[in-house]
Amino acid sequence: MSQMTRPDTSELREKYPDLFDRPAAARLATPVMILAALAIFVFGLVDLDFSPGKLISGISQLGWITMMMIPPDLGASLPLYLKALGETLSIALLGTTLAAILALPVSLLAARNIIPTNLIRFPIRRFLDSIRGVDVLIWALVWINVVGLGPFAGVLAIMVSDFGAFGKLFSEAIEAADRKQVEGIRASGGSALHEIRFGLMPQVLPVIAGQVLYFIESNTRSASIIGIVGAGGIGLQLAEQIRVLEWQKVSFLVLMILVAVAAIDFISTKLRFAIIGKRAVA
């Protein structure tokens, strides 16, 4: 085998001058960004009063609390806890379902292939961004002051928070849909509504269903958190037991939440595969 000839550096320099003679700004950009990130990181540690001593003492305190939580004990409160868990699941299910129903028509107006002009699409997208930018816990505090304590405020908080997220996700799924089916319906004389109903929706509905199922699982955890601030559900019971230092009951409530989330994840996975299977057969 003949030895490969070594390329001439001068010829390569003449052919690709940008690679050999990069400006100083381009060469220093990456090191400067790394140094800036490290400086921000160090400043954050100092500004937030990060202390290794506090961390070590906190870990030992966490270990003590963990030992106090073993073994889990429900006492005589199982019916009350099951009712609270049912409230949490209802909050997650109702809030997510209402958000999906309300977000679907709005997502059509936010999709580029449905509304090509920015005059309508831009304010709708910014409206969805503003809603999505507020955390569900903040929405829970807002709705508690509007409608009072209880699960109704939790449903409204999850509904509003997920409305912004679903609007973005649904519109992106609609924009990613294949245009061939839409063009086929248009060529056969179908109207714009026919294009959406028979060209876009059959493609995006399985994707939307998968997203909704995932959010139901995720919102089960969110409903537990917003219950701590007074939105009902098992989070309210969890906050009360933490307040009175009943750590064994706290661990039992945490286990109930974990089992519920695992069960919902199992069911939603089965449903997603069933939806995907039906789509493949179709």
Rank of each mutant, 00 (worst) to 15 (best):
Q181R: 08
G199M: 01
E195M: 14
I196Y: 06
Q181D: 01
L205F: 14
S188V: 14
R186L: 12
L193D: 00
K180Y: 03
A192T: 12
G184T: 14
R197V: 13
V207I: 15
L205N: 00
R179G: 09
P202Y: 06
L205H: 00
I185Q: 01
P206A: 07
G189A: 12
I196S: 06
G190W: 07
G199E: 08
G184K: 05
R197S: 11
S191E: 06
R179A: 12
V182T: 14
Q203A: 02
V204M: 03
A192V: 07
V204Q: 04
A192W: 10
R197W: 10
R186Q: 14
E183L: 05
Q203L: 05
L205P: 00
Q181P: 01
L205Q: 01
D178Q: 09
R186N: 05
R186C: 00
G189H: 08
G199P: 00
V207G: 02
V204H: 01
R186V: 15
P206K: 07
Q203P: 02
V182N: 01
E183F: 05
E195F: 07
Q181E: 05
A187L: 11
A192H: 13
M201V: 14
R186P: 00
G199D: 03
L193F: 10
I185C: 04
L205V: 15
I185R: 05
I185L: 11
E195H: 00
L205D: 00
H194S: 15
M201T: 09
D178M: 07
E183S: 06
